[in-house]
Nucleic acid binder design. Structure first.
Length: 827
RNA sequence: GCCCAGGUGGCGGAAUGGUAUACGCGUUAGUCUCAAAAACUAAUGAGCCAAAAGCUCGUGUGGGUUCGACUCCCACCCUGGGCACCA
């Protein structure tokens, strides 16, 4: 033992100093032994399902960002438990993923080994932080007993026609050697490794999430998501209402064909002068057979990576196909082009060009020297020929040169022309979506095997339910082959199997599922984690669902959140889950930035290790600091000085409550009772309202008052103060509570006590400071009872010197706001 | 370009129509100490003033509504996040 440690130990004994390391560990063990946070269905109690996003157990351990959201929601879970609710606050591991696989590629250590080590460590961290998880419900997505059901859901999707395999152009990451979902490509680069993605044609499994687009959109109205989360989902689904218009094609070999275009602006159709098709369009392929020019253009366009397309900017290129489409409104022949600015995945992959009223069409018309017609006059009143891009009238205006639409506002005209087209059979109202089907195949080892078998006679056949799970086999090399096949393809004894349908020779699917699979339904498994008959018992699911409060990162808004809503709705349709939506309320936390205000990263050297905070200041300080750091939904920079501030608070609480002087007080003053009452209400409202920072501030404020009025708080009120502290700082409050209670045979934790109730009558007796204003300026302050009469208060206000001075015999009128202000307005 | 969030002391922030700057940090002074640290006490938006009292100004900018605006309305500027050749 060093001298320093010895000195500290001695002084602790003498002064009974606050030493978190001496109290926290012992309570973790005690709570676990007492099964304090274990929960079962109880129809007598109102349930509350509080959920945080389960982490990926990485080698970097849980970081201060995890600590922030887990601590805050833990305070909510603890508060609700004390309020008598049956609270489910579970934890698990989203453990399939690249880091473990990459580590395996480098070292040959099986990912399950690394994963287990990481989970063990992270679990120790979570326990040390005093998080009240029910560990008997822990789930792990890489556990075959878990992914058996992930595979089972996939088979159900397949059976309902919502999973299908198709040759598509995919985003290929040459570094990760796998394809990526559209959502995983950011700025033409791989979201994970940053390598530029390439385009490849490959057969892939897709999930038909687009079949649920409308419901995913509409049901947002039935849940309480933070507004920007809902807005982002709406944007991502990107529903646009319009019309599909059919045009007859004119040209030697294509006489009987038609082209269908999607547009949201059929009102401008009298101004249409050309049609443009995406390079992937069928008609383009037909023309390409005989036209070298078209063939070359299509080839170049399809070879371009996402990145190259962006580099080229918005410069318009294209080739005339030598064909025309007939505009039924005008009888005009419109030349048909192919151009890569038209996307095959949106609408019908074909657009009608109205260069006067769409900037992209204008640019294309200029590049191809096509005619430009004005059919709308905007608010600027400009009726001249459109020759400059600034003149393109898109947003509003009145129809001109448009036959029966002339004189109508564009919005009325849109409805009128759609009715007309539908009546004449020229088109049909339709919607188009930004949302695409979910590319579900990955060529990695460390993921759930897709439980499908391919038979040359029967096609794709699902593995029979009783043979699930299809376990991940051992491989020699974890490295993806690079040919577009996962490492599983090299194990011929695993790949070669028999067809479950006909018994003939067949091969297994060797692709695995993406990361998002296991996390799309984990919250269901928490309700019944050990069930080996079904994914979850119906009654248990009915008891716990929906999740009452789900908190997670903003980065999961368009991926995980949408995917899991989709799976949940699918399971709802199968009658497996009781609710159409999984999450009743969704919030998200801000990122904890480094002390320099930048995102934490190893390369910047600004990473804060939560374990270091715990060993230096204790878990209670870590928790309360992370609550106090700033508004929960906002990103905030780490500040060691503020950690010190919170630690000072903990020390002051400790010293005050353990001191002899404080414990001599037998009777609380009225003011103390009233203040504590107000605090009680504030903590409850702030925690439920996600205002963790002001909840901590209120505790501090009360402590400041108490420090100045040490003789005013008796034992009952001190105990109440400790109860109010318990959800936020579980360790110190347990320790102090037990000390206040004194020795007892039967252990009764502070965390199983009832939350104090606040009563309205306290508010009536409350003293309030009212402001006296003259002409809107504060001239005096008076203190009265909240229940005082208006006339009495006004009289008091008029007696104030500084008020008299300004009124001075003048005529005035009075505005009176009870409890707040008396305002004199000189006439 | 479109959608969302935000702009308040030296710093993190509080206040959603009624005392702007709660709470924390920092700074200054003091107590304790041989000294320092810790702890405790006090002060701390700016200006006028020796000081106090008092007055004036002050929440990104410019207008408006109101007895009264950080808060509501209109226009604009800036920062962060999301989407983006989506017809």
């Amino acid at each position: 033992m060093s001298i320093e440690v010895l000195m500290t130990t001695i002084s602790n004994v003498i002064e009974a100093k606050y030493t978190p390391s001496e109290i926290e560990g012992k309570w973790v063990e005690k709570w676990s032994k007492e099964k304090l946070y274990e929960v079962t269905e109880d129809s007598q109690k109102p349930k509350s399902y509080v959920l945080i996003e389960f982490p990926y157990p990485s080698g970097d351990r849980l970081h201060v960002g995890h600590a922030r959201s887990y601590s805050c929601l833990d305070a909510v879970a603890r508060l609700r438990r004390m309020k008598g609710m049956n609270v489910l606050y579970p934890m698990g591991w989203d453990a399939f993923g690249l880091p473990a696989e990459n580590y395996a590629i480098k070292t040959g250590v099986h990912p399950s080994v690394t994963t287990k080590q990481n989970i063990d460590h992270a679990k120790k961290q979570a326990m040390a932080w005093g998080l009240s998880f029910d560990w008997t419900r822990e789930v792990n997505t890489t556990d075959p007993d878990y992914y058996r059901w992930t595979q089972w859901i996939f088979i159900k999707l397949f059976e309902k026609g919502l999973a299908y395999k198709e040759e598509i152009t995919v985003n290929w990451c040459p570094s990760c050697k796998t394809n990526l979902a559209n959502e995983e490509v950011v700025d033409g680069k791989c979201e994970r490794c940053g390598a530029e993605t390439e385009r490849r044609k490959q057969a892939q499994w897709l999930l038909r999430i687009t079949a649920y687009a409308d419901r995913l959109l509409e049901d947002l109205n039935t849940v309480n998501f933070r507004e920007d989360i809902a807005a982002q989902q709406i944007n991502w689904i990107g529903k646009k209402a319009g019309i599909n218009i059919r045009y007859k094609v004119q040209g030697a070999r294509f006489k009987n064909q038609e082209i269908e275009v999607f547009t949201t602006r059929p009102d401008t159709n009298f101004g249409a002068t050309f049609v443009v098709l995406a390079p992937e369009h069928d008609l383009v392929a037909q023309v390409a057979k005989t036209s070298v020019k078209v063939r070359n253009y299509v080839k170049t366009a399809l070879d371009k990576s996402e990145r190259e397309r962006q580099m080229e900017g918005k410069k318009k290129t294209g080739v005339f196909l030598g064909l025309y489409a007939i505009n039924d409104l005008t009888g005009d022949q419109m030349p048909i082009y192919v151009s890569d600015f038209v996307l095959s995945g949106f609408g019908t992959g074909a657009v009608v060009g109205v260069p006067g009223h769409d900037v992209r069409d204008f640019e294309f018309a200029q590049a191809m020297k096509l005619p430009i017609r004005r059919v709308v006059v905007g608010n600027d009143g400009d009726t001249t020929e459109i020759t400059k891009i600034e003149q393109v009238q898109e947003e509003e205006g009145i129809m001109v040169n448009s036959g029966f639409l002339d004189g109508l506002d564009i919005h009325e005209a849109t409805v009128r022309v759609m009715d007309y087209m539908e009546e004449k059979g020229l088109g049909k109202r339709a919607s188009s979506y930004h949302l695409r089907d979910w590319i579900f195949s990955r060529q990695h080892y460390w993921g759930e095997p897709i439980p499908m078998v391919h038979c040359s006679k029967c096609g794709w056949v699902p593995v029979p339910e009783e043979q699930l799970p299809v376990k991940l086999p051992q491989v020699e090399k974890y490295q993806p082959s690079g040919t577009g096949q996962s490492p599983l393809a090299t194990i011929s004894e695993w790949v070669n199997t028999t067809c479950p349908a006909c018994g003939g020779k067949a091969t297994r699917e060797t692709d695995t599922m993406p990361n998002w699979a296991g996390s799309s339904w984990y919250f269901l498994r928490y309700c019944d984690p050990l069930n080996n008959k079904v994914l979850g018992d119906k009654e248990k699911l009915a008891y716990w669902l929906p999740v009452d409060w789900y908190n997670g990162g903003m980065e999961h808004t368009t991926l995980h959140l949408l995917y899991s809503r989709f799976w949940h709705k699918f399971l709802y349709d199968l009658g497996i889950v009781p609710t159409a939506e999984p999450y009743a309320r969704r919030t998200s936390h801000g990122v904890v930035l480094g002390p320099d205000g930048k995102k934490m990263s190893k390369s910047k050297g600004n990473v804060i290790n939560p374990d270091e905070v715990v060993s230096k200041y204790g878990a209670d300080t870590l928790r309360m600091y992370e609550m106090f750091i700033g508004p929960f939904e906002q990103s905030v920079a780490w500040s060691w000085e503020s950690v010190e501030g919170v630690f000072r608070f903990m020390k002051r609480v400790w010293t005050l409550i353990t001191s002899q002087e404080t414990n001599m007080v037998t009777q609380s003053s009225g003011e103390a009772v009233r203040r504590l009452h107000a605090l009680n209400k504030k903590i409850e409202n702030d925690l439920e309202g996600m205002k963790f920072n002001t909840a901590v501030a209120a505790m501090m404020e009360f402590l400041n008052w108490w420090t100045d009025h040490k003789s005013e708080l008796g034992k009952a009120e001190i105990e109440k103060f400790v109860l109010l502290l318990a959800p936020m700082a579980p360790f110190i409050s347990e320790e102090l509570y037990q000390r206040l209670r004194g020795p007892s045979d039967k252990f009764s934790s502070v965390h199983t006590q009832s939350w104090p109730k606040y009563e309205v009558e306290f508010e009536r007796d409350q003293e309030v400071t009212m402001v006296v204003q003259v002409d809107g300026r504060v001239r005096a302050k008076i203190t009265t009872k909240a229940s005082a009469e208006r006339t009495e208060i006004e009289k008091l206000a008029l007696e104030q010197e500084n008020v008299k001075k300004y009124l001075d015999g003048k005529k005035y009128r009075v505005v009176f706001v009870p409890g707040k202000v008396v305002s004199f307005i000189v006439e």
